[in-house]
Simulated assay, not measured.
Amino acid sequence: MANGIEIASYDPKKVSVIINGKEITNFGPDSVISVTRNEDIVTTQVGVKGDVAYSENANESGNCALTLMGTSSSLPYLRRLAIKRTPISLMIRDANDVGAVNVAEDECRILKPPDLNRAKEVGSETINIFIPSLNYR
């Protein structure tokens, strides 16, 4: 911290996605990955007098969206995995110094083959991966 100001840097080149041991390449211009849980980890109930109860949610599943350029050499590989309905291991490594979060999960599935988009310019295609138990490390 310099003069009370927090300074941090982020480098998207330090983020990698590996599926079944193969590094995924050629991400879209705006987004590399988006990882989210499918449901809240806790739900709440507030009684008429303000009493609060928490319910722990056992659903730990999540979703990962990868946005790749339409020219990505990873797209045919991901299409094959989706079409063959192959379970995959997903590893997301963030080597940034600040805010680094890693995910490493097995038995994930690509929900459907990526769409095929062709236009005047190179577009992007999104691959959605279901994660049965999403844990941040």
Results as ranks from 00 to 15, higher is better:
Lys112Gly: 05
Asp51Ile: 06
Asn135Lys: 14
Asn57Trp: 08
Asn59Gln: 02
Pro114Gln: 02
Gly50Arg: 05
Val42Lys: 03
Tyr54Trp: 08
Ala58Gly: 08
Asn59His: 01
Ser133Gly: 08
Leu66Gly: 01
Glu56Tyr: 13
Thr126Cys: 08
Thr43Cys: 04
Lys14Val: 06
Asn26Asp: 14
Asn135Ile: 11
Ala104Lys: 06
Cys64Ile: 13
Thr43Trp: 07
Ala95Phe: 10
Ile18Phe: 03
Asn59Cys: 02
Asn102Ala: 09
Lys84Ala: 10
Ser89Ala: 12
Leu75Asn: 02
Ile92Gln: 04
Val35Ile: 10
Asn38Leu: 07
Glu23Trp: 03
Val122Gly: 04
Lys120Thr: 15
Gly4His: 06
Val15Phe: 08
Val101Arg: 15
Glu107Tyr: 04
Ile131Asn: 05
Glu39Asp: 10
Ser73Gln: 13
Asn3Leu: 09
Ser9Cys: 07
Ser55Leu: 07
Asp94Ala: 05
Glu125Cys: 09
Pro12Lys: 07
Leu66Cys: 00
Ile7Thr: 12
Ser16Ile: 13
Leu90His: 02
Ile19Gln: 02
Gly47Ile: 03
Glu60Tyr: 13
Ser89Gly: 07
Glu56Ser: 10
Val42Thr: 06
Lys22Glu: 13
Lys84Met: 09
Val48His: 12
Met91Arg: 14
Gly62His: 03
Asp11Leu: 05
Leu116Pro: 00
Glu39Ser: 14
Glu56Thr: 12
Val17Leu: 10
Lys84Gly: 00
Arg93Ile: 11
Lys112Cys: 07
Ser89Arg: 14
Lys49Ala: 11
Lys112His: 09
Ser9Ala: 12
Glu107Asn: 11
Leu66Glu: 01
Asp106Met: 10
Glu60Thr: 15
Ile88Ala: 01
Val17His: 06
Arg80Gly: 15
Asn117Arg: 06
Lys112Phe: 10
Gly4Ser: 12
Asp97Asn: 08
Pro29Asp: 04
Arg137Ser: 12
Lys22Trp: 00
Glu105Leu: 06
Ser16Lys: 14
Glu6Ser: 07
Val103Lys: 01
Thr36Asp: 11
